[in-house]
Design a protein around this nucleic acid. Structure first.
Length: 427
RNA sequence: GUGGGUAUGGUGAAGCUGGCCUAACACGGCGGAUUGUGGCUCCGUUAUUUUCGCAGGUUCAAAUCCUGUUACCCACCCCA
């Protein structure tokens, strides 16, 4: 127990960090182009924020939160997602007073007490964006396009974009009633979960994967029939804009987001080969959330992306960059007498920005050469007895094929300047 | 929360109708062939309380059978 991570968590090892930094880099670059600024909110918040924001009856809040009482007797919860926190911060810092909409993005760990599975961990990482204060369908389309561009830039193929509209507080009650009317005679056929959903949130029955429920859903009334004019028009415009931008998508009337705050546009991007956890990214509009949490009525839209899932997908398509580059110089001291000079030289090289290393263990020359090779060193400096007696060291180019002509002697005094130009040449 | 599978060294793993396992093979590591020089090749070595996730049990005898436990994987569920 002492020597293993808690269930559902993972170390991201040095060998894996490169992939993360790469993906994060792409995300940050694109966010900059789209005008989104990073926000970093605390990993824990008052429990009530998530209960209010995400919704009391959602699975996430009901059975997946890491909640505890702190020493000051406050109920604290490790964030299961970042939208509620972003909205809280938006209100707390009165960003609604800014002349322009708030455009925020975040990357960080989230926590959900789930049963771990492929692409699902208890501590996982999400990247997400939130656009607060823009109500028009162009905002919806822009957010979806950002998502599409990110995945495109990463090179991912075989993705499916699904969109839907879940209506607004004006038209949803009518739909809710219609749904209940439809399901009432079939209550006995529904699975246990759906029977409890019937009262609390009948829209989620549509989403059920249970065979019978799924079959019944096919004949259920469609939300489209109940949408008010404004919602209909909004959804139509979003589709128009997406089509105009050349983005392929399918309208999936069964797509229902699991968090209560969503209104109107909902969307998801899937990568089917990931298995059961194929949703790489999901989001939608949440026009009521800011008000629900206690701010002035402000429209909002955003999405969240599962970092682990994206990296898994990139791995399966072989799109991750090769392992990180090696060092510039490895200093070798064949005899112990020269070790001190090698050491100080390494320090001097590092001071001018050259990545240098040496052998910590005073091993044989051959072992030191092998170490240099493992570290992928571009050059090796050999502090050999003979050369040193003449005030020289050997500089060996490790990258050339021609072993015999790959080294020359250089004066000890010029090591730094010569290496500086050599390393630059190499760039 | 439910169901199924798995658990052997630094890594990938063989072995699992019990004794020949004081645990194959491969990679990696270390040393050497090359007495001061890497990447290829070859040789040697490499599970440091009789050790096979952990804790018990059956047996003359268990990595191999049984029970419990923990973790991981897969699916349900949920979601990113």
């Amino acid at each position: 127990m002492l020597t293993s991570v808690p269930r559902g968590t993972k170390d991201i090892l040095p060998s894996e960090v490169g992939a993360w930094r790469y993906v994060e880099g792409v995300l940050r670059d694109l966010c900059r182009c789209f005008g989104f600024k990073e926000i970093r909110t605390p990993v824990f918040e008052h429990t009530e924020l998530f209960q209010r924001g995400i919704g009391d009856t959602t699975d996430v809040v009901e059975k997946e939160m890491y909640t505890f009482i702190d020493r000051g007797n406050r109920s604290i919860t490790l964030r299961p997602e970042n939208t509620a926190s972003a909205v809280r911060s938006f209100i707390e810092h009165k960003m609604y007073a800014d002349p322009d909409p708030a455009k925020l993005f975040y990357i960080g760990p989230m926590f959900r007490y789930d049963r771990p599975q492929a692409g699902r961990q208890r501590q996982f990482h999400q990247f997400g964006v939130e656009l607060l204060g823009a109500a028009g369908p162009n905002a919806d389309a822009e957010i979806i396009l950002l998502a599409v561009q990110i995945l495109r830039k990463l090179g991912l193929k075989d993705l499916q974009l699904k969109i839907n509209t879940v209506g607004c507080p004006e038209c949803r009650p009518a739909y809710r009633e219609k749904l209940q009317d439809y399901y009432r005679p079939h209550l006995a056929e529904l699975c246990e979960d759906c029977r409890s959903r019937f009262d609390r949130n009948p829209m989620r029955i549509l989403d059920c994967k249970n065979e019978k429920c799924h079959a019944l859903a096919a004949g259920a009334p469609k939300l489209a029939e109940c949408l008010d004019e404004a919602c209909k028009e909004h959804f139509a415009k979003v589709q128009e804009l997406l089509t105009a931008s050349g983005v392929e998508f399918t309208v999936d009337p069964t797509l229902v987001r699991g968090l209560d705050y969503y209104t109107r546009t909902a969307f998801e991007i899937q990568y089917t080969p990931l298995g059961a956890q194929s949703a790489v990214l999901g989001g939608g509009r949440y026009d009521g959330l800011v008000e629900e949490v206690g701010g002035p009525a402000t429209p909002g839209i955003g999405f969240a992306m599962g970092m682990e899932r994206v990296i898994l997908a990139l791995q399966s398509q072989n799109l991750l960059p090769e392992k990180d580059d090696g060092i510039d110089v490895f200093a070798i001291a064949p005899k112990a007498e020269a070790a001190a000079l090698a050491f100080t030289t390494v320090e001097q090289l590092r001071e001018v920005g050259i990545c240098a290393a040496y052998d910590y263990q005073q091993r044989s020359m051959k072992a030191q050469m092998k170490a240099a090779n493992r570290l992928n060193a571009k050059f090796v400096l050999i502090f050999g007895e003979d050369e040193l007696s003449r005030g020289m060291v050997t500089l060996r180019d490790m990258q050339t094929e021609d072993k015999d002509n790959s080294q020359r002697e250089i004066p000890v005094a010029d090591i730094t300047t010569i290496l500086k130009t050599e390393v630059q040449k190499n760039e």
